[in-house]
């Protein structure tokens, strides 16, 4: 699905910053609120990077937990399904909580969890060249 577009964009970003040097590692920060499947991403990354300076590079994914902040009372929380959110659906805890659990106001701010960031890359330098 769109992991192909996303991994293509990651390779393009890495190549731009590599400036002609072979890439060995690409560090990606991926927020838990994004709908990108990590295994699909690494699968397509390997395909898209063939015949480029990213070929053989390792895609390292760092996951970021989501964090919301209520604009009304300032309470901060992780909206992903948690036991304290209470409700069970078909025997499994499935319900996220985007309304403030403290004051029930809607429209909270997303502080963390939307990241899809290429944080850094590692490249091979020729010995003796700075």
């Amino acid at each position: 699905m769109h992991e192909l577009s996303v991994s293509s964009a990651i390779v393009d970003t890495a190549l731009k910053h590599a400036a002609g040097r072979p890439v060995t590692v690409v560090d990606l920060r991926l927020g838990k609120l994004r709908q990108v499947v990590p295994s699909s991403l690494t699968f397509y990354f390997e395909i898209v990077s063939r015949d480029t300076l990213c070929e053989g590079a390792r895609l390292e994914v760092e996951f970021v937990d989501a964090l919301m902040a209520c604009r009304e009372c300032g309470h901060e929380w992780d909206p992903e399904p948690k036991p304290e959110h209470g409700e069970l659906v078909g025997g499994e805890l499935l319900l996220p909580q985007f309304r403030c659990p403290q004051c029930e106001t809607a429209g909270a701010e997303v502080l963390k969890g939307n990241e899809l960031m290429v944080e850094s890359i590692e490249v091979n330098e020729e010995a003796g060249v700075t």
């Binding site: 964009a9 910053h17 899809l116 850094s120 590692e122 490249v123 091979n124």
Partner: peptide, 12 residues
């Protein structure tokens, strides 16, 4: 040959 880490900080 040595490795260099380059900060990117760009949205994909």
């Amino acid at each position: 040959m040595h490795r260099t880490k380059i900060k990117v900080a760009e949205d994909a």
